[in-house]
Write a protein that binds this DNA or RNA. Structure first.
Lengths: 315, 315
DNA sequence: TTTTATAGTTGCTTTTGTCAACCATACTTC
DNA sequence: GAAGTATGGTTGACAAAAGCAACTATAAAA
């Protein structure tokens, strides 16, 4: 790789877009919150009221944590709500330190009113958009939520491929290896060729692709295909784990699933082609029982590489 | 329209998703703003500083408007900034009521520090995401920004392809035609094959791909390649415009650009293959001067289709 | 000229939020 | 079971943030 083409992390324009969005949305939320102006509640009270109505049972500590409110401040807010008769506080039976919080009928009504109001407001905004824009807005919001809210990442899912996945495979491999190793568009071409041939000659009995997902988001993939010449040999191809999803054992799971399928499909051997620089992948192959059988230097994708062939004999 | 199929407004689940996103993002922005805790500036001061640095000339009224700050409060904030030597205020020549605001060298430095800090913070968040998730996050943010603050969408940009684009081409075509016409994975295979061959045999002199972008988001593409048999004929392929970007004349622009290039590259004819059901595209081809020369039914992608060949003679 | 609008300031007030000290209870550990 | 520590919550004191209204000075409109 030339000094000019350094492996880029987040690009400045991405950072700029991210920050611009945050500024915009800060303003947007600001105008949304102005909707509370004609209500007897402050923003903080409204948020607390929401939490009170939507948790069961509502715990003061949790609310403070979730809204990042100072416990002292929250205590006073709750006091105020109690004073206005929206909230009932009484000592907890199970834990005498904590108090049981419950909205009174009046409190529930107040919440419903607030809620209806803010639902109206949301509807007004959404209704003012063209249907397609609205759909895209919602889809984007869900995507962003999935991406930003760190969920239980250890729960990934392997599923078969479906329409559109191959495009994602090409894109993720191309971008991933371009960034990490500077491979050029000839690699993208190779991947596109492989997936094209995979789809064209697809035979469920002896070939498979698995897509790994976390929260509905694709984070890895692997292919098992018939060896072009040797009928009883399978080829493992295009193992990929997104950089951010590494360390979850996802690679191991993908390879394991592949090997399991290879056995059940009656293959007697699995081979794979990889490059000497992909050391993280090697460890995965080793753990799965593969053995390095051949090395050969070659020049591809704009780089000098050393290709490796690995094999696994199936019992 | 029947009474049953009322023109649907926003569905409850959309409203719910919208509100959930707003709650989530309120929290998210809250944590972002905690980054200011170790600085000598409050959130309001930081925002004002940002506006001061990014407007020229900065006008107090505009800043108050844009951040929806009370003018009195802003006045005090500016006073504080002036006191700390970050800001210079002096009576305006043109309008004696208003004052000219300008950051001092110290003020500029302070802004740069703040800015660098928040850029770091943004980078840290973005770097922690998988490359593809990051790309999607940014794309979604841009989409949302476009939808909520409708900018001038007619400003699209055509650019040459780069690494990763072919994956997006495959994905967008596959998903788009699967959704609209139910084409199956054989179509995805075909697209992957086409782009793979395009990359493999790419010759800048006589072949091109253009990606259409709006605000950095890919929304369309087109290819011009050499005809396999006839050397002086070019083939136009894979014209695609994202549903969300239709009606902007983007298709016309893509085809026009293609034809312009075909002429300059010395071709005498441009042909293309399309399907009878793609009527929107036909209008684009017609406007560009193409003529239908042949029709032929075929069975592809899981559907009965009528293929069409169109031609344009270049003068 | 009079009226009205704009730009900004200042005094006064409320609201909001923070910090630290504090109490009572629960859990841990020896 | 006693001592120490952690948890859940409250209170007082205070500081910061924000809003409102009155006010000055100027500009623009009638």
């Amino acid at each position: 790789m030339t000094p000019l083409a350094t492996p880029s992390d987040t690009s400045p324009s991405e950072t700029a877009a991210f920050r611009a969005f945050n500024r915009m949305y800060t303003r947007f939320i600001g105008t949304l919150n102005e909707g509370l102006l004609n209500t007897p509640y402050s923003l903080a009270e409204a948020r607390v009221l929401y939490e009170l109505a939507n948790r069961n049972p509502p715990k003061a500590t949790e609310i403070a944590e979730s809204l990042s409110l100072d416990p002292g401040y929250l205590s006073r807010l709750l006091g105020k709500l109690e004073q206005s008769g929206l909230l009932k506080r009484k000592a907890s039976q199970q834990d005498a330190r904590s108090i049981d919080l419950s909205l009174t009928a009046k409190g529930k009504l107040a919440f419903q009113k607030l809620n209806a109001r803010s639902e109206e407001q949301a509807d007004a905004i959404l209704d003012s958009l063209p249907a397609s824009a609205r759909a895209e807005l919602i889809a984007c919001m869900k995507s962003i939520e999935n991406i930003l809210s760190p969920s239980d990442r250890s729960h990934f899912l392997l599923r078969p491929h479906r329409v559109g996945d191959m495009g994602w495979v090409v894109q993720s491999e191309a971008l991933g290896y371009a960034q990490q190793f500077g491979w050029d568009e000839r690699f993208e071409a190779l991947v596109a060729k492989i997936v094209s041939e995979f789809l064209a000659g697809f035979n469920l009995a002896c070939e498979r692709c698995w897509i790994a997902e976390i929260d509905g988001r694709s984070v890895g993939h692997i292919f098992l295909v018939k060896h072009p010449n040797e009928p009883s040999t399978a080829k493992l191809r295009l193992l990929y784990v997104d950089p951010a999803a590494r360390g979850l054992g996802l690679g191991d799971a993908l390879v394991k699933e592949c090997v399991r399928f290879a056995k059940s499909a009656g293959y007697s051997k699995v081979t794979l082609w990889t490059q000497s620089i992909l050391t993280a992948a090697h460890r995965i192959y080793q753990r799965a029982g593969f053995q390095l059988v051949k090395e050969e230097p070659h020049s591809s994708f704009g780089k000098q590489l050393i290709g490796q062939e690995w094999e696994l004999e199936l019992c």
